[in-house]
Design a protein around this nucleic acid. Structure first.
Lengths: 356, 356
DNA sequence: TTGTATGCGTTATCAG
DNA sequence: CTGATAACGCATACAA
């Protein structure tokens, strides 16, 4: 009957165990690390002593000091988890990341990129071996500075950190262009776009050249550029986030005026596309007869009834796994490589030739 | 022009900085920790030397050995992140957790509860100060053993770890009963339930007494018990996961036979409820006229058209925050308290009096 | 206000 | 196969 509030006299250390087993600490250490052969007899004695003293293995803190690594990789997300995980591609990506890191036996430390109420950013003092930055934009830039100052290996997913920092990127521009060509091939001429946020201010509204010039989120910029490679004058509305609700808002903005109504809308994410579809149907438009809607990401979207979104499928899990693998390489002392992953067109039921 | 592949000769240490600044290491240490007054003059000198040597602050690994804590709290999730985050309440809960931990400046280390391919579980060697277990069931039980062996403070969310381990629980049984009474109050007599998985096997199908006896997931057991407090003979079908798709499957199973069709279905999660609604509408039934459907969780569900789910809203963020706060207490040496949080009934448009 | 001494718990090296 | 020794880099009590 051990009470959990019992004041542990003092945790047993490796030295205690060694002493109790009548061996040196180095021998005891080797029993646990297994890096050298030990006779079965002494191993038994050490293990017995350990069990006896309630020793649960080497203290990770001491080990990490000695070894120079902690087995932890930081992932820096923007803002609240709620926000970061609102994007459905985040989860498969994180999953890929943990997979890619598995070869290291490393865990993932979730860090927020917040101002942090005047505190020193956790990133500056976290015992991590490497850092993965996601979407190096705005505030994330500050994280990059900290990381570089600490001299930690870093990989950037979907963002450009410049100067020889390995990055995992998507062919956003080419993929967006491919989708635009699909729409063009169907015969659409009056087309509009709904973009992801332009910067961390996340202001909604018509995308002017001036606003675009100040934009900081690469994904948004690239996907719009790709679409405009095909439709140079493509009008666009920016959303406040990648969500169905924001898609509805942007959709309304583009569809409310029947005179200026496009026949196709290119959304920069599947969630936005779902919102656009909802907005269209609320206005009595039929998809794809009256309006074609294209998405981006290739996630499974609930809530658009019988529709199957026409979209560009991005390799989300691969993205994370690639980042994890590059981190592993850097930690092994090998030189990392930037990787460029490609999206795949997937036809759905939400795009068709215009009927007008 | 610093190349990132430059072989750093050796990272500067606090001692180097102190030496360069012509002060002792303790003085230099204090400059960074700020735990004692230092004259502006020496502070300047130390900082200058640090900048000069590219010293980015104390090595967290050494600091954590010295201080006896790492500022990291582990969260153990079941299976792939994909699976854990499939449950929409996980994200707000994690958010609450990081909030609750914020007072400690602690980060969250995501750990999977996997077999791990014969490797030692990361939990056994991760440099963490405390552990949060989620839904202490089955495999998680093994994690608990490791944690106890290491003598780490631990808090369990929605699970019973027994023996004085603080837990954050929900009034699942009472809440489920409250919902059942709502349905009863509307006049329903033929009612059925769709439950969450019974155990980690996640087998779908009719819930027999025998299967229920072997069930290991407390949430499922409790919510079903609550419903049966009101409808003692309530038939139930278990889902393979908390998802819309699984809700559809369970819904079909319950509704396919017109003769034995219930007039109300109590789903153990909102996603399952959404699936049931979809299954009902696929069969030509109207909700709530032909079938009342109740959910559980109070998340925002897309994909059920105009419906507003009648549900029990659980305090997801609070759950996480409470866990974080208890961890903080334990690390401050105060004794932790188990907390029991309550759900709130929210009326929607998916339940009504039976029309037959 | 600053310096001195000590130990946090390990693990790598190398000699026996 | 085992043991002595020396770091790993830092933060604190205490003395100056």
């Amino acid at each position: 009957m051990t009470s959990s509030s019992a004041p542990a006299p003092r945790r047993a250390t490796l030295a205690d165990v060694a002493h109790a087993a009548g061996v040196s600490t180095s021998t005891a250490s080797v029993v646990f690390s297994g890096r050298t052969r030990v006779s079965d007899a002494t191993r038994e004695r050490v293990l017995a002593a350990a069990a006896d003293l309630g020793y649960a293995g080497p203290d990770p803190r001491a080990a990490s000091l000695r070894l120079g690594r902690s087995g932890i990789v930081a992932v820096v997300l923007e803002g609240h988890l709620r926000t970061a995980f609102l994007d459905p591609v985040t989860i498969p990506m994180m999953d890929g990341l943990t997979d890619g890191l598995a070869s290291l036996g490393a865990g993932v430390l979730l860090l927020r990129d917040e101002p942090g109420e005047g505190e020193v950013p956790a990133l500056a003092t976290a015992p991590v071996d490497a850092v993965v930055l996601i979407g190096c934009s705005g505030r994330t830039r500050a994280s990059l500075e900290i990381v570089r100052a600490r001299g930690l290996p870093v990989v950037v997913i979907e963002g450009d950190a410049g100067e020889g920092i390995p990055q995992i990127t998507l062919d956003n521009r080419e993929a967006a262009a491919e989708m635009a060509r699909h729409i063009q091939g169907l015969g659409h001429e009056r087309v509009a776009a709904v973009t992801l946020p332009l910067d961390s201010d996340r202001i909604r509204g018509r995308v002017t050249d001036e606003r675009l010039g100040r934009a900081t989120i690469d994904v948004t910029i690239e996907r719009l550029a790709g679409a405009r490679d095909v439709y140079p004058d493509l009008p666009a509305v920016s959303a406040g986030s990648s969500s169905i609700d924001d898609g509805v808002i942007a959709g309304r903005a583009l569809l409310s005026d029947p005179a200026a109504r496009p026949t196709a809308i290119l959304a920069q994410s599947d969630l936005l596309a779902a919102g656009v579809i909802r907005a269209a149907e609320d206005l009595g438009l039929r998809v794809p007869d009256d309006l074609s809607v294209a998405g981006f990401d290739g996630i499974r979207v609930d809530g658009i009834g019988p529709h199957m979104l026409t979209t560009m499928v991005q390799p989300a899990v691969e993205k994370g796994r690639a980042a994890g693998e590059q981190v592993a390489r850097m930690l092994r002392g090998e030189s990392p490589e930037s990787m460029h992953l490609t999206c795949r067109f997937r036809a759905g039921t939400t795009t068709a030739a215009p009927t007008i």
